[in-house]
Amino acid sequence: ETTLTVATVDAAGTLRNLAGKKLRDILEERGAKVKVRHIEGPVLGNAAQVRDQVAEGSVDVIGTDAAWATPYSNFLKATSYAFIFRDHAHLTSVFESDFMKGLADQIAAEQGVRILGAAILPSRAYFTSVEPRSANDFEGLKIRSPQLDNWLASYKALGANPTPVNWNEVFLALQTGLVDGGHGLPVDVKPNNWHMAAPNITDLEDMFAVHVWMINEGRWQALSEQEQADLQHAVNEVNAWMAESASKQNIEAIAQMLKEGEGSYISHSAAKREAVAALAGAEKVAEFPNAEREKLREMALAAARKMEGQTGWWDEGVLDQIQAVK
């Protein structure tokens, strides 16, 4: 019997925290030989630190935002960069492609960390006090950014002014005007109350949230074939559950935040506006013109092309390779 230590870092009650519990329960219900000890909350360190602990082998598995895997591969940097993917389905196909499977093997060999699978979650939204209606409105906007170069580059490409702020301090930073906006998955944002300080929720589907499970490669290789299969099965099941409940809860979370705050939901997507309006009322939604979104998309992609092939960025041709995936 093997017990794996699994950490999900996010606070109790969040989607990731529940996913960690679910992973443990699925394996238990199947009577699998591999068991999970789930460590809740940020008690082992922040996401980057726990990721390093997985690499070192003191923690076995981490379930976290894919952003924290980007330092392992220049290709993965492209997955947390604005407008690289056409839509949710496109991103899903890229993650299911053979190329991605090869990449997982390569990262495991080079970094000692294996990506077990990903859950493709809904898009992130901008939470701002102003109501952006055009590409110009992003010019100079101080947007909170995590300490990762692809995010910084991505916000800069849109003309915004990325400001690094600790996730825990974002609400206060919004409140006091240290930053003008935050960017995050609405279900993740809701418990942090950003909408009380920055009530306008702009969803341009420029970046999707991706959740990954990473395991220490030595630990993975030490598992029997049956144990590997059981774990993989459980991870896949949890990922499916996460993707489904996130998309279900996301619209509800947006509607709930609109009711609590004074702002609107702004999106280019008519279908999404309709779904939100059904829950929060038609007066709470507004349109972001498609042409303006197109402008932002071109700015982001032009900057991305410029970085292609430069040291520390994705290889020449990667962007075309991604676009070629159906």
């Binding site: 360190g45 630190q49 602990q53 003191s58 600790n166 301090e169």
Partner: peptide
């Protein structure tokens, strides 16, 4: 491995 990262917090 845990000691120095224990300090890694901007505040």
């Amino acid at each position: 491995s845990r000691m120095p990262p224990g300090l890694e917090s901007f505040p």
